[in-house]
Design a protein around this nucleic acid. Structure first.
Length: 376
RNA sequence: UGGGGUGUAGCCAAGUGGUAAGGCAACAGACUUUGACUCUGUCAUUUCGCUGGUUCAAUCCCAGCCACCCCAA
């Protein structure tokens, strides 16, 4: 079977290529490029602008070396426009509303598992493959998504918006392999260009950035007041409410206050219209917590959860699973009632549903409540 | 212009005649395919408002000055 593998220039996809080949697949490698810093005016806070070699080109070169080493065909494709139109514009729109979007969830939905999948089909591949840490199990004519064996690297969270058809069309060779083993395999077979490369982080295809500076390229700074939600005192000045997310501590610049214990200040509410950033003192302040939420943009790989069903969810990547109960007030959204009060549940972030290690799908956090009162 | 109080790092804030706690912020690193959280580290020795004095030794004692605050006017 012909499979097109997304080869990023990192160790994970490289080892995936090797494993697929060993399993007998006819593998074609393809490097994707979805972000062009110059074309996208990504200037402020871009640490790589003046580098001699663009990191993307370094990655491409590393990927080519992997393909060559494994004797696999190498291709390259740009989805710059698709990424901007389907992922980044949504990302900016969400920020403009004062929400905190997760671009990588939509990068998978629209780019890797849509544009790229179509590209693979056009090139005669029945399936695509990715170096994600996630496990796909096919039973009969249905595919199921499970957390990766290496729970510390599990990336099912980011796959929560792809559909059954997309899931059916994709292989995840690393589902049962730990990160440690991946590096061992890379060393064993001598994938020198990637075997000791540091894991990549930051927004997929864009990379590590000073996030506030990065956003300033697209969202103008607008200074405003930082207000203590408990006393209404003005404690400082922010650079723009859009740049902060709920639960955030860093970047507020609030020092000690006469006569008070300083426990650190945490963002607990954003008023976009008034341009006020509300903060609470200490990480356990009641204003940081919520007890229910409305989730929309629902996507389930198979059956929807049942009314009243108790499930686990992740409200953020790498957060521990939290218990919730499912309620349907209408067809397009789920109302979650939390087992306990949970901290910093943030509109715009993905909510991903799990039944133990089985990932059912996900949605987007739309509204958050505490004791019946809407918080956003 | 009488009385009282305070002046320690960007902000709070301990401190003692013997050579400057802690917290917040900030910065750096770790963690991390979102953004956060979290963790670790760094952060006053040209130094404790300034200037003199006492002392072997002063941020801590004394004097003067300056600044700010409060009360009384």
């Amino acid at each position: 079977m012909k499979v097109m593998l997304g080869l990023s220039g990192g160790v994970d996809s490289a080892v995936s290529a090797y494993l697929l080949k060993e399993q007998g697949y006819d593998v074609i490698c393809c490097f994707m490029r979805n972000w062009d810093s110059m074309a996208n005016n990504d200037v402020l806070g871009n640490p790589t602008l003046n580098d001699n070699i663009c990191p993307q080109e370094k990655d491409y070169n590393d990927a080519c070396l992997v393909a060559k080493k494994l004797g696999l065909k190498m291709m390259r494709i740009d989805f710059i426009k698709e990424y901007w139109d389907n992922v980044f514009s949504y990302f900016l729109d969400e920020y403009k509303k004062g929400r905190t979007p997760n671009p990588d969830i939509f990068c998978n939905k629209y780019i890797k598992f849509d544009a790229f999948l179509n590209f693979a089909h056009k090139n005669g591949c029945e399936m695509i493959a990715m170096g994600h840490y996630a496990k796909r199990v096919v039973i009969g004519d249905k595919a199921y998504l499970y957390k990766a064996k290496d729970l510390s690297k599990d990336q099912s969270y980011f796959l929560s918006q792809i559909n059954q058809k997309q899931l059916m069309s994709c292989l995840f060779p690393l589902g049962d392999i730990s990160k440690k083993e991946v590096r061992e395999i890379a060393h064993k077979i001598g994938l020198e260009s990637v075997m000791d490369k540091k894991d990549s982080t930051g927004v997929c295809f864009i990379g590590e950035r000073n996030f506030k500076e990065f956003l300033e390229n697209y969202l103008p700074a607008q200074k405003g007041k930082i207000v203590d939600i408990d006393t209404n005192r003005v404690l400082g000045t922010h650079d723009g409410v859009l740049y902060y997310t709920l639960g955030q501590r860093r970047g507020l610049g609030i020092g000690g206050i006469h006569g008070e214990d300083a426990k650190g200040w945490f963002v607990c509410k954003k008023d976009v219209k008034k341009n006020i950033l509300y903060v609470a003192s200490g990480s356990e302040d009641e204003h940081l917590f919520s007890d229910s939420a409305i989730i929309n943009n629902l996507n389930f790989f198979n059956e929807k959860p049942l009314e009243g069903e108790h499930l686990n969810v992740k409200f953020r990547y790498r957060q521990q699973d939290l218990g919730v109960t499912i309620h349907y007030d209408n067809d397009s959204a789920i109302r979650l009632v939390f087992d306990d009060n949970y901290k910093a549940v943030t509109p715009g972030q993905g909510c991903v549903f799990y039944k133990k290690d089985l990932c059912l799908g996900g949605g987007i956090i739309d509204q958050v409540f505490y004791k019946g009162v809407l918080k956003n």
